[in-house]
Nucleic acid binder design. Structure first.
Lengths: 230, 230
DNA sequence: CGTCGGAATTGATTTCGATCAACGGGTGCG
DNA sequence: CGCACCCGTTGATCGAAATCAATTCCGACG
């Protein structure tokens, strides 16, 4: 039984929920806009990105069915990042004040929200681990594997990815250049792990890909766990 | 007036708080251990790190006075990361169930917790931006600047950093090697931005360092903001 | 007070990914 | 229908950081 990150049904009775349609390239919100809602993706694909004042932009993640959007903006007046649809998408909109109030009243909802917030943090940390310790090809493998896993959690086939984002989005997310993404994909294909045709990626060897998603060379990790008391 | 991330006073009346002493190298918790509390640093310095099953380790951040610890573990049975003291430190321990229950009852506490969780996410995202878009030297500058800012928020002098972590910890956090940290520090010193003697770092030119903490070369950002509807 | 070992700095060389460049292919629009 | 533009792939070269290596610094402890 797929454990959804966010089940809109839990909230539907407690807060007025509106379903929004987003077309390709349409922004759910942008940095600078007022914060007035949280969102849960119903169907579709969104890209989250953080931006610096000097123009730098970093893709932080991608959101699909069941994922929360906007949690990072709790407590803020204005959004600090962008959320844009990569595809035709539908999201549930939950007025933020009403939602937080509902969480204060209903213990189960509060737990849901805490869960979602903590899960977001863990996901970010886990990705930071990958970014900090893996090379380009391993990162890409980890990324594909993550997509596959999320698809299967939604009850979809996991070995057939129809990736809605451009190579450049993937590259930015992986903190590498898009040429490197291409090359890494080709290498994975040459190893017989995946079959790539444009945005249609088929995973041929899931365990092999999983192996590739961990450190290939003689990684040491660096920090060195010294003898710790207690 | 310094706006603290977490004010222990808010919780002290509502949950039984215990103050814990941690000596250098002592673990507050380790991956695998049961989750039973949240923590707020009183004084000292802690290092958070995420670890992979294959031994890779990534330093996620450092915690000092007023910072929460353990938020990432909400909803988990067992910790997935390490929290270790770099220095003699004192932390407040808040039993997790009692604390979450208190948040459910008291709106102000709930807001505090949401705030802290969301702030953690924003901090992570902001650091991901730095990791993804800055070179080694710029990252280091950003790191020093962040330490300085946090010190000043605690009411301490900001331009004198007595860094309790080893180069290797910094390196891991910055996702570079410790030799590179050394070289980058030396370069910053040669530019007259900082004075370094071991772990005693003096910031000589704050604005200059801030300039260094942004992209030096002709960064483009990559993703390319296309014409967005709405 | 000396020495021992981990931490830090600096140098030489290698390597991985970035950059520069060229080209193929699909798609939307005139 | 065909052109133009963007996306993606691949090749050649460059460069920043990793790796390998040698010292120096410094604190702990006998």
């Amino acid at each position: 039984m797929p454990e959804h990150d966010a089940d809109i049904g839990d909230f539907q009775g407690h807060v007025p929920v509106v379903r929004h349609k987003l077309t390709r390239e349409q922004y759910l919100y942008r940095a600078g806009q007022a914060v007035h809602a949280l969102y849960i993706v119903d169907v579709g694909f969104l890209r989250m990105s953080e931006l610096a004042d000097d123009g730098r932009e970093q893709v932080i993640g991608f959101r699909m069915g069941g994922d929360w959007i906007g949690l990072e903006s709790i407590g803020l007046k204005q959004h600090r990042c962008d959320a844009v649809a990569l595809d035709l998408s539908y999201v549930w909109e939950l007025p933020i004040e009403r939602t937080l109030a509902a969480c204060a009243e209903t213990r189960a909802l509060q737990a849901r929200l805490h869960e979602a917030l903590a899960r977001e943090i863990r996901g970010d940390w886990s990705w930071m681990l990958a970014l900090g310790t893996l090379g380009a090809e391993n990162r890409l493998a980890a990324f594909l594997l993550d997509l596959a896993e999320r698809r299967s959690r939604l009850g979809l086939v996991a070995d057939r990815l129809l990736i809605p984002m451009r190579r450049i989005d993937i590259a930015n997310y992986l903190a590498i250049k898009h040429e490197t993404v291409s090359r890494a994909l080709s290498r994975l294909e040459r190893q017989g792990l995946v079959a790539v045709r444009g945005r249609d990626v088929r995973i041929l060897d899931m365990p092999g890909l999983a192996r590739e998603a961990h450190a290939t060379p003689s990684e040491d990790g660096g920090v060195g766990r010294s003898r710790g008391s207690s």
